[in-house]
Amino acid sequence: MQAAYKGLKEAGIDSKITHYSFCTNGSHYAGEKGIRTIGFGPSQENLAHTIDEYIEIDQLEKGARGYYGILKSVFGK
């Protein structure tokens, strides 16, 4: 988790460690199976898994930078 957090910071994304207010598969993997799980995604949390869900282009680009930052930090590439 710390490596992912570091990767987001290095990608210029000011993230905070918290929890989602909606359900994801992470509930199963982390809660039931005990697998360390992180969640990260573009856009705004209040739009996730709702009717008329959408994403702004700048949020999509920011999400791509975040995913790259996480992978780079976690896998050291």
Rank of each mutant, 00 (worst) to 15 (best):
Q2R: 02
Q2W: 01
Q2K: 01
A3Y: 00
A3T: 02
A4S: 11
K6Q: 12
K6L: 04
K6H: 11
E10K: 03
A11V: 04
A11K: 05
G12K: 09
I13C: 11
I13S: 09
S15P: 00
K16W: 07
I17A: 07
Y20M: 05
S21A: 01
F22C: 07
F22G: 14
T24Y: 11
T24C: 15
N25S: 13
N25M: 02
G26N: 11
G26Y: 13
H28P: 07
I35S: 00
I35C: 09
I38A: 00
I38K: 11
F40L: 03
P42Q: 08
S43W: 04
S43T: 14
E45W: 03
E45R: 01
L47A: 06
L47Q: 14
T50W: 06
T50H: 01
T50A: 08
D52K: 13
E53W: 00
Q59P: 03
L60Q: 00
L60V: 15
G63D: 00
G63A: 12
R65I: 01
G66H: 13
G66D: 02
G66F: 03
Y67D: 08
L71H: 04
L71Q: 05
L71N: 00
K72L: 08
V74P: 08
V74F: 14
F75M: 07
G76L: 14
K77R: 15
